[in-house]
Design a protein around this nucleic acid. Structure first.
Lengths: 253, 253
DNA sequence: TGAGCAAATTTGTCTGACAACCTGACAAAT
DNA sequence: ATTTGTCAGGTTGTCAGACAAATTTGCTCA
């Protein structure tokens, strides 16, 4: 019988989702080895007391997640490397455990440092222009011109570094990692954080990163990126401990 | 009308898979913005001339891939960051385009270098023991003792480096990247490749990597890892161009 | 023992029905 | 004028049954 996963303030997941989760856990737990055939749809229907449609949806999810492959007439089979078709941070929808954060930021530091190094080596005049423009927008956001969105400029700055590195996979992976912390970056650029000087510290790190890339100094760029992410991790951790300060839930419709 | 995606030597994908691919492409292509509502199931049924079951399976896939979120009674909505819940190399089941390989290996080099650096700093006596043991197994596979599986020892060697780095996310991501090239590593340790000296070159790179980690020399370890991956990329590329040499398809039941 | 074929089984797709939920419009109350 | 409650229509979630396409199994025969 499927155990309903109900998120405290959110809607319960559907049966298909729940069954997929259970089957994935069974595969991960070694109940089915790579290449092994899963129970037939009919068997799953009987075992879990759900309709065939639910079973098929669960299998569709498992296929998307790289856990199984299906062959019409034969069955569903555990993939050669179940679940390794995707790289994912954390479990579906669940918050990242706090004890994982240092490891994730360290992974980010490795990736961002490597990317900054390549950016310093490969940047074009157009890249530098984009970097400068984004940097200047952040400067204006700091000066309180009010018309500039610091967080968006921060995103643009990092996207420009990624473009300068000229490796789309590095860029995608860095963006993938960063999007897990987009809320933290947004907080960095809120009025209270700017007033508290937090954004200025971040911007000083950006300045060092920019200077190194402009100078074509790969080592300095890597080091500046490493420091920036290390400090971002500290800022993020500080936010987690200084719990609900919830300044203004400025919600844009 | 759904265009059938048929893989040249593989079975055609189902309609659900094909529809999911098209909807994902539409979302990626900007046809639906984050937060936008997708056409209703009924509309998709009419537009694509498929049954509702196919539509639902496609949506289940898109949910698993992080492209959409559904709310019962309301509809399916494009996720805040569509497709970014997972990081994936290549498209589902399709071979990685050759022109992407250099970029992927470069990403691997960045990650493996960062990991080797940490391993050199954090390795324990037990780590060194595991590294040595794996290295010795590869030596024996090279000497032709026959009882040792070079590819498995190669895997174990890299797993030991990952363990020494003491960052599970780095380890997982490195393994994720490496599994896309597991066939290439297996070829490195086949009798013909050993006879041709290819495995010896790889092992010499392992030796430098091991020496640097044993010496606790982080810079040398990073450099040795970078070189190893760069050479692995060259070996992989050479295999792609020297096409079907297909020595012996030794298939283990 | 191996080849050929029919029957059984399994996945893929379609169709129809009902349950649960959502949204927008409108009425009633404050 | 604003807030709350109700309801109709629409949408997703689940169930059930039927048939098509592909694979596996079992049986017969040379």
């Amino acid at each position: 019988m499927i155990e309903s996963q109900s998120h405290s303030l959110l809607r319960p997941a559907g049966l298909g989702d729940a069954l997929a989760g259970q089957l994935a856990a069974a595969i991960r737990g070694g109940e089915f080895r790579p290449g092994a055939r899963l129970p037939t749809e009919k068997q799953l229907v009987e075992r879990f007391h759900v309709s065939r449609a639910v079973v098929r949806e669960a299998i569709a999810r498992l296929k998307a997640d790289g856990f199984v492959e299906t062959r019409q007439g034969a069955g569903a089979f555990v993939a050669a490397r179940p679940g390794l078709a995707n790289f994912r941070i954390g479990q579906n929808g669940a918050a990242i455990p706090a004890e994982d954060l240092p490891h994730i930021f360290e992974l980010r530091a490795v990736v961002e440092a490597g990317m900054a190094e390549l950016a310093a080596q490969r940047r074009t005049p157009a890249d530098l222009q984009a970097l400068r423009a984004a940097f200047n927008e952040m400067e204006q956001a700091l000066a309180g011109s009010g018309a500039k969105d610091g967080a968006a400029a921060d995103d643009a700055f990092h996207a420009a570094i990624a473009a300068a590195a000229q490796n789309p996979y590095l860029a995608q992976f860095a963006a993938f990692l960063a999007q897990h912390f987009s809320a933290s970056r947004a907080v960095t650029w809120m009025p209270d954080a700017i007033a508290a000087g937090s954004a200025q510290v971040s911007q000083a790190e950006h300045a060092r990163l920019l200077a190194a890339i402009e100078a074509g100094d790969a080592q300095a760029a890597a080091q500046a990126a490493r420091t920036h992410i290390t400090q971002a991790a500290a800022r993020h951790a500080a936010r987690l401990t200084s719990k609900p300060k919830m300044p203004k839930p400025q919600r844009k419709g």
